[in-house]
Computed example of a mutant assay.
Amino acid sequence: MGRKPYRKVVVGGTFDRLHLGHKALLRKAFDVGRYVYIGLTSDEMIKDKPYAEKILPYWRRLECLLKFIEINGYSNYRVIKINTAIGFADSMKDLEAIVVSEETYKGAVLVNRAREEKGLPPLKVVTIKVIKSKVGPKISSSLIRAGLIDPFGNPLTRKKNETGKRL
């Protein structure tokens, strides 16, 4: 790819059970930004998410994120633990863009509102489409945690016991 349009971009999330949607979001961030800041939600921040008790701990989510970055040969990034939806995006002057999905677009609006309140310029919003699942409108970590789909959006069939009844 030629020159990347932004010097510094931000992307954030829980990145639990790294799935195709997460990977598309991260790829887009690395495609458009020369330096990528990744806000990774802390364990404290995820307590109210669906199936929160099944969300992998921060250190494990970080490990999977770093593995994905390494496998793809990405460089020029920094992962920062965040404790709020805004994270650090309202305090870094030289950020230029935020990468979100259609579903998380409202987060970019909140970030830009917070930046405006601090006298910082708004970020350009780069949006990717939601990746469809074979059992619903999108691939989501919640559906994976619920045991309904795999990280590729394929439906999971419940295991059967010896009598043929679903467990």
Rank of each mutant, 00 (worst) to 15 (best):
I144Q: 00
G136V: 04
V135H: 07
K132S: 06
P137V: 05
T157E: 14
K134A: 15
V130K: 11
G153M: 00
I139V: 07
P155K: 10
K132T: 04
S133H: 15
P122Y: 09
N154M: 11
I144S: 03
R158Q: 11
P151Y: 10
K129R: 14
V126S: 04
K129L: 11
K138C: 05
G153Y: 04
S141T: 10
L120C: 10
R145D: 01
R145N: 00
K132V: 04
S133Y: 14
P137Y: 10
G153T: 08
E116F: 06
I128G: 02
K132C: 03
I144A: 00
I128E: 04
I131H: 02
G136C: 01
K132A: 06
V126F: 03
E117K: 06
K134F: 14
V135M: 14
K134C: 08
N154Y: 14
R158A: 09
A146S: 12
K138G: 01
P121N: 03
P151I: 15
G136M: 01
P121H: 08
A146C: 08
D150G: 04
L120H: 09
D150Y: 08
T127W: 06
V130Y: 06
G147M: 01
S133G: 13
R145K: 14
S140N: 05
L123M: 06
R145T: 06
V135Q: 09
S142I: 14
I131N: 08
K134N: 13
K124A: 14
V130I: 13
V125K: 01
V126A: 07
K118G: 13
D150S: 11
G136E: 02
L120T: 01
R158K: 13
F152L: 12
P122A: 06
I131Q: 00
K118L: 10
L120I: 03
L120F: 13
P137D: 02
K159R: 04
P151M: 13
S142L: 13
V125I: 12
T157F: 10
I149F: 12
S141E: 00
I128C: 02
L123H: 00
I131T: 08
V125W: 01
D150L: 07
K124S: 15
K132R: 09
K134T: 07
R145W: 03
L143M: 15
P151Q: 11
V126W: 08
D150C: 07
